[in-house]
Amino acid sequence: MTETMSTPSEYDAAAVGALVAKQQITEVLYRRARAGDRRDVELALACYHPGATEEHEGFSGTAAEFIRNVSMISPNSTAPVIGLWHLISNILIELSGDEASVESYHLAVVIGDDDSGETQSSIGGRYLDKFAFRDGRWAITHREVVFDWSRVDAATTPYWELVGLDEAKLLRGRFGPDDPLYHQLDVTRGQ
């Protein structure tokens, strides 16, 4: 690191600890987004503590039940969805010992494909999460999803077509282990 860095002992240790906790909580939010967008059930489950609960689009129950059987990443899902993308921002974390209340914003894009053709749904919403530090890790104990707005549009001319790029040369996002994240960046699923 650079020579201007001070040792932690020069700061209030609790303040530095809070910063580390906030970073770890932030990463859980990003991993939960990655889990949905890549359809990685094990990774999604790993973002919660055992027994965690979720209120999500009319569902109210355990997070594990939601992920395994109800959500669009469930292997049982019949939703005509071919792509998901969740951008997370505006993360506000209120720490209270080994618990935390966390609000984050998401901008989600859902690519649908059914008889009527390809659609793009855009959704602006928020996650209201309770986190706890147990067994050496921060994870979600309760998640509520708030939807602020949404719109559904028919697919448009893609960017690459508009500017004449060869789509075959582009890396495209995918559900599952075929996504470039795994074969280009050697990231392991489920972790």
Binding site: G83, G173, P180, L181
Partner: peptide, 27 residues
């Protein structure tokens, strides 16, 4: 998404490779 490999060279983090993944687009 960007898939990046980063290296710290002389105290500075830099990109040693970048790949761009296209998930969706709208015009």
């Amino acid at each position: 998404r960007y898939l990046d490999r980063c290296e710290q060279v002389g105290g500075r983090w830099q990109l040693s490779s970048r790949q761009v993944v296209y998930d969706w687009s709208r015009s």
